[in-house]
Every structure is written in C-alpha cells, then in structure tokens.
Design a protein around this nucleic acid. Structure first.
Lengths: 241, 241
DNA sequence: TCAATAGTGTCTATGAGACAATATCTT
DNA sequence: AAGATATTGTCTCATAGACACTATTGA
C-alpha cells in the first residue's frame, strides 16, 4: 500500500472492491405465541442457494437503504410480518467460510418477539409460523438450525429473569395470560403468588383500569408493560425446575 | 438477476464484487488487571484513517487466513499480546454508514480477559495498557469509545453473577486475590464470607494443595478455576451496592 | 348455591450480607 | 507474645416456592 500524504487522499483512493471481502447479512429469529405454543417464523427460499428449503427471515445488508444494522433487521421484520415496533435484540454474529456456498459469510443474528399476527403473504416467498419444537428438527437452510437453537437457549435463559414473555402477547393482558406465556417458554408451571409478587414489587406493569371478563369466574385486571421496563432484569431468577 | 437452472450454475456465476458491500472487521477490547486497576489494551494507529489516534485492537477479516470470526479475534489478540488461550466473548456487532469514513462498516466486537503480561512491541504499532478510567475519557479512533463503554457495562454486569475476574489474574491464585479482582471491577468491597461460601457451594474452583506464604500472616490456599466452569453463572447476584 | 377464575396471606427454604471468632503464619 | 492474614460460625434479611384461603363473577 502506498504511503499517502493526507487522509483525504487515502480516502479518495480507497475502494473496497480492491480487497477480498465476506458476505454480510442479517438473520432474524421472529418468535410469537399462538395456541399455547412458541412459534418461529420460517420462510421458504425462492432462490439459490438452498432453494425451496425453509429458513429464518433474513437478507443482505443494503448499504444504500440501511443506515444501521438494526434497520436491516427491522426491514426484514416488516417485510415478513408487517409489524413495526417489536422487541428486537441482537443475539450473536456468526462468521465463517463454511456456512454459505457463495463464500466467506458473516451474519448478525437478531431475535424479535411480537404478539401473534396472521402472516400477510405479500412478499415473493411463502412464510409460516412454525412450532419451535418442530422447527428445531427441520433441515433448515444454511446453519439456521444452529441459529434457532442459539436463539432458543437465549430466550429460555432470559425468561427466568426478564420480562420478555410480555412482548409475545398483545396488550393489555391479564396477569394469568402473562404467567401462561412464561410457563409455555419454561415448559412447566410456576407459582402464581411468587410471580405476581415480583411484578408488584418492581412496579414494572401499568394497571390500565380495564377488566377482562370471559365466561365464568372473577374478572381479571388488565395491564400493560411500562415502556421503560421493556428490558428490565430481575436480580433473582425463577427456578428453572 | 437471471433465473438459473441449477445451483451449481448460480454459484459459478456469483461474484460478491457485483454488489455494494460493507467493510467487515473485528475489534477486541482486551482487559487485564494490574497494579490494582482494570486496564484495557490500546493501540496507536499507524495508518489512515484516524492515523496516530489510540484505538482498540482490531482488524479486517482475512477471508484467506481466517476460517471463523473468532480466528480474526484470536489472531488480533496474539499479534498484540502474544497470549494464545484467553477468555474471549462476543460483545456486540455494530454496523452503520457513519462509523468509518471509508464507507458502510460492520464490526464484531469481542472482549478478552487475560492475566497481566508486559506487551511485546513486536508489531508495527505501539500498544499500551491503559487504565480504563483514563481510556474512557480519551478521544479514541472511530466509535471505539462507545465500544469500550459497552464492554465496560457488560463486564460490570457480569462480575455480579459470573467468574470472569478469575480470567484476569494468573493461576493459581488465593481466594483473597480473586476477591480483590472482583472488588476492583465492582468499585467497592464485598463480604469475604458470602464470597467464599458461593464459590464453595458451587464447587467451581480446584484446590491445588499448594499454599502461598507472603510476609506475615497465615498462608493461603491456592486455587485454579475448573476449566469446565470458565463460563459458570450463579443464579443469584452479588449486591451492586 | 356451585363452579370457575382472580387475587391474597403466610409459612418455609435458600442464599446473600454483617460481623465476630478462630487458625496459622512471621517477627 | 503481638501483629498480620486466612478461614469459619452464625445471625439477620430479602426474596422465591408452597399452598391454603378469600373474592367476584356466571349459570
């Protein structure tokens, strides 16, 4: 490399295509809760490579259109579900020379949590909500099975000390509905009283004043998650069983 | 894009340089403990952009040489410190069109923890251990000040429930030395008994049988961290003050 | 009134914090 | 023996789990 006199000169001469570079993409594991089970959004690939295989939602970074990495993730999310303001968290970044037949590939993996919506099949690809217990056994495209496995581990760890299940159900919700969301992810029942006590103590929910009456039984108070508590972490964990 | 008949045909025709792509790099926040304070490794940049500014250790992915993203991080680590088997954890991936004057840039940020070593100034750049309280106020290259800030937040969060301070000191160590490492990161003293009790309960240390005698006082037992416990997390946190 | 669901009272168990007491060295 | 540092005993406090109890609705 020549020794430039000034930074301006160096930058003017810089061209990324003079160098061998990796592919750069974003994949998003989009979760929701529906019919008492955790679902993940899968997309049927229309193009090579891995054409016609199920995959996580994802795509290349569009350096014209996206100003930040999160924009790529949000763009993907909106394209697949039409949802605009979900819970989005970076999970990990995987990069190696094996995962994509087109060459060295680096992908930033996010996971998103949204209340259930029917999928609008507006894109060119077919998409569906798949039960995670089924999805994890499918032969997904690329290394997406591993990515899903990673995402599940993170979600199952975070459910013990965070409020993430609140992002999977539509607001306002009852405490029983929220507890049920925790139980589905944890895979076992939890104590009603401990559950309510920690929510009460930390003041993370807003009581709307509305009530929900459904069939028999005492009506339940309706709550929303306080926006400033979206990422709240408890200091102590629930028992993992 | 043409409609290929076969995957092989598609792959043969694929050329990454037909597309606008971002820069892809790895940055590593290398921490150690020395003279009772947390230090981070800073490197003086020899080349544009941000020539002559201090920066975190980092570099581009070498798609010929590196098979995995971690290799880029480990290569960087070895180049700067000569150390080969440290604690390495992915922190976050930052990507946007602002952080590098050469264009859209994506960097996978890792943090590493190593026992203190004198820096062998073998590379072309000058490197030094900098006290984090100083480094965080420097005008570092790129967005490295933010990256350092992120790393510090992660470390200060993890010290409450993990064993990461054990990676900052050389083994074997005494329980008092390990406790001191926790205290330096936490910024305040902790209770000796609670500290020892949780280590004992979880059986995460190996008692070497050796003792350390230094000046007056009862000699201390020497321990190592059990390798399988390198990433152990406690269920309950220490008080953050 | 009964069944069903929401919500509360309170005892126990676990593990962290506080701090005093004991143990084993050097000088 | 005195001083220094390591190690342990044990009380208190916070918070999760267990589980029984009360409250409010519809049929």
């Amino acid at each position: 490399m020549p020794n430039y006199l000034s930074e301006a000169e160096y930058l003017a001469a810089y061209n990324i295509h003079d160098y061998p570079v990796p592919l750069a993409s974003v994949d998003v594991c989009i979760f929701t809760l529906h019919q008492q089970s955790l679902k993940v959004l899968l997309v049927k690939r229309k193009e090579y490579p891995h054409k016609d295989r199920w995959a996580l939602a994802g795509g290349f970074i569009d350096i014209q259109q996206d100003t930040h990495l999160e924009h790529t993730a949000l763009r993907t999310l909106v394209k697949k579900t039409g949802v605009t303001t979900p819970y989005l968290e970076q999970l990990a970044t995987i990069g190696n020379n094996q995962r994509d037949p087109r060459g060295w590939s680096m992908t930033a993996v996010y996971f998103a949590m949204i209340p259930h919506v029917e999928l609008l099949q507006t894109g060119t690809e077919l998409s569906q909500w798949s039960d995670v217990s089924l999805a994890i056994n499918l032969d997904l495209a690329f290394d997406h099975r591993q990515l899903l496995q990673l995402a599940l581990e993170r979600v199952r760890a975070k459910v013990l000390y965070s409020l993430i299940p609140a992002h999977l159900i539509s607001a306002p919700f009852t405490l029983t509905e929220l507890q049920r969301a925790y139980e589905i992810i944890m895979g076992h029942e939890i104590e009603k009283k401990s559950f309510r006590r920690r929510l009460e103590r930390e003041q993370v929910l807003h009581e709307t004043g509305q009530i929900k009456q459904e069939g028999a039984g005492r009506p339940a108070a309706l709550y929303t998650l306080k926006p400033e508590c979206a990422d709240f972490n408890f200091k102590r964990q629930l028992e993992s069983e």
